[in-house]
Amino acid sequence: MNVANLSPLQHQETEFEKRRGISRVEIRYGFAQVHITNLEGEIQAARLRVLKAVNEAGISVDFLKLTPTGLSFLVTNNCADGVAMAIQPVATDSSIRPERAIVLVHAVNIRDEEGLIGHIVREVIETGTTIDHIGDMHDRLLMIVSAKDAPRLEKLLTEKLLAGQE
């Protein structure tokens, strides 16, 4: 290629890094949330007994969160009955909410964008949606909500968060 005669305007520029801020809102369906409270005895050991029971039942868990008196996690809807049986001997105070959805708000380097996570969470709470649980990764915020509420939340977030950036 003879580049000597190329002017900058003749050369195709290339776009690079993902745009800063929120890029999209996504929903994943098909989960049940297991919430266990008031575990007895030393809390770390009690949580471990629950996880061991679930493991022995061959069930994979996601979104594990530790709470002051217990823990919560997600399983796929079709594992809800299996997990209920597995944890029965080790957790007296538990609930399983079927038909949950994960709402994912994608934003590159979300943890490094100052105040962004707080801003999103505030917006979600203000929509009146009950958040069962919340978590974060380097490029997204994840919220567990009722599958019934998820489409409305997706619409509201898209309007409030994505439109606000344009």
């Binding site: 969160k65 709470t67 490094d112 969470v121 649980h133 919340i134 978590g135």
Partner: peptide, 10 residues
Amino acid sequence: DVNLFMLDMS
């Protein structure tokens, strides 16, 4: 403008 990590909510 505080950065948040490892959120949880119950």
